[in-house]
Amino acid sequence: MKEYRNYFFKKLGWFAVTLVAAFILNFILPRLMPADPVAAIVARMAQGQTDATGVQAIYEQYIELFATDKPMVEQFVIYVQNVLRGDFGYSIAEYPRTVNDVIRSSIGWTIALQFPAIIVGWVLGNTLGALAAYLKGNFDRLLMPLSIFLSNIPAFGMAIIMLVIFAVELKWFPVSGGYGYDMIPNNSPEFVWSVIVHYQLPFWSIVLITIGGQAIGMRSMAIYELNADYVKYARFLGIKDRKIIQYVFRNAMLPQITGLALSIGTMVGGALFAEIIFSYPGIGTTLLTASLGGDYPLISASTLIITIMTLIAVFALEILYGFIDPRVKAAQAE
């Protein structure tokens, strides 16, 4: 247990440092660019080019929130304070809603969509890859080209294809949104049903793009393990194949967890596009709205939230991995 505690604190430390680095990147990247969006927006507002409602309010908020008239270091301190308070100011695209409000209403949709979809895709992909490695023959010959093909369709492409086939042509599912456009969120069975129906296409398009790569990885991992020395040894001590297969798949699956931790960033990125294509009311669609509306506070907050969510997912996976793979503990004991 002591080894595991070491591992845990090491990972926790790494998580904390990464989090700080993510904060800094999120703050500094936009300000390093030739056309600093904060400055651009402030300048635009100061000149009074836009005279829509609330411009003055936004402008004043800006000066206060981003302290653009103060030195960089001080700006950063203020930025961190604001982030910790959850105060990201007003959204430009969705004025008079605050950024906090916009994010809060979309983040639940994203978590409820992406988390299960990535897990289901991972499980299905690994099962199929393991079966391909074990059954070989026709199953393998059919599944592998299909997986390679699937893994090469970009996330947005898959979403568009599913949209056209199942929503536009077959009309089995609605084309967009998280629930019927004529509904108000409540607990009625109609609303729940509507949410379930709207959930299917974005969900399965994320699952499908996840399956391909996972199946390919699991297959080669399992083939590698099937040829490992311990398999031969176990066979020659008379252990049944069924038992040996258990060893093999357990061992092949463990690196796949690390693989998931490493690629979850890419997956989340892909899944955002599924949201956009289906106008799912999550962070992905929020990003699109913000980008089209030139809404810097919203972009900045969304990217920060997505980064933090990804970091938490990676951290959770690594903690889980350390728990189930004894090799991690052994490495810590050295």
Binding site: W14, T18, A21, A22, L25, N26, L29, P30, R31, L32, M33, P34, A35, D36, P37, A40, A261, L262, I264, G265, T266, V268, G269, L272, L287, S291, Y296, I299, S300, T303, I306, T307, T310, L311, V314
Partner: peptide, 20 residues
């Protein structure tokens, strides 16, 4: 490691938006 876990598309979005 930092850039491995931070989704690269997120950085891209942030930078592209900022470039204008």
């Amino acid at each position: 490691n930092l850039f491995t876990v931070i989704p690269s598309i997120i950085l891209l979005i942030l930078i592209s938006f900022s470039i204008g």
